[in-house]
Amino acid sequence: MLLKSTSMKGWGLLVGSVLLFLSFAASIVLGYTDVNLMDVYQAFFNFQQTNDHIIIRDVRLPRAIIAVCVGSSLAMSGVLMQALTRNPLASPGIFGINAGASMFVVIAVSFAAGLSMQSLTWVSFVGAAVAAIIVYAIGAAGREGLTPVRLTLAGAAIAALFSSLTQGFLVMNEKALDEVLFWLAGSVQGRSLDYLLPVLPYFIFAWIGSLLIARHINLLMMGEEVATGLGQKTAWIKAAAGLLIIALAGGAVAVAGPIGFIGIVVPHFARSLVGHDHRWVVPYSALLGAILLLFADISARYIIMPEEVPVGVMTAIIGTPFFVYIARKGLKGS
């Protein structure tokens, strides 16, 4: 780990917050329509019906807020998922969350044409929850309860099943493909705060929950026997972590579509900075996830201007070089 002492970790958190704020500001300022910070200030405190002001208030700001919420939620759910499965390769996708959400959305688009984007938010949230509950139930059914291997395998099987059904629907129905291809790649573009508001309560509840549960996750990571021996009710902690993952990753996919990479790699970034204490890994992941998604979203505007690349594509393009670098330098214990 890079940051060894507690005070350094604390300072790191502060630096991270400043970075987050700067990228947030950059996300509002940069883009096809050039505005400067003065305009931003004016837009809030001296609002005029000019184009710039409307863009700032109705397009850029919601987009940046959504990127922060989605990025941090995905990263936190990745931390929990990797802890729960004790597998560094696990991501919320392994829980079948993205696959379930995608399948429900594709089915909805195929059979009920003309659904509003808002109702798709709910459809995908429900799909994510249904898939995750099925996976959890299969993983936990059996004499010895939920073991990491069973959960991982059940998740991989269900995710494969759902995504192949999705592929099937898309192959049979090219029109649906056209409509949902952009959704399937994940994007924070063109989403107003109305998309975020329905899931925001779940997000807030889950963010607090993740910070609170971090202590117990540390214990759980020592192994089932040790944790039980120290008096932890492991089944409860696992169930709570499962619920948090559904709220975080399900909410994220509902707002922005399946955005890959963040859930799987940001926890590794965070661990390379602060080691294995989840009380630090969770907040660091949240910060790093938000920053990565903001950056990805900003660069997504510039690649094929004036059109935009889905942000899910950019997270991978930006994140991979870093990730390869960290993997080569050596990941502590993972």
Binding site: G260, A316, G319, A327
Partner: peptide, 16 residues
Amino acid sequence: LIGIGISALMQALTTM
């Protein structure tokens, strides 16, 4: 780990 990173990148390029 490097495989995962590369495969995410490949998926992204495919989508693009």
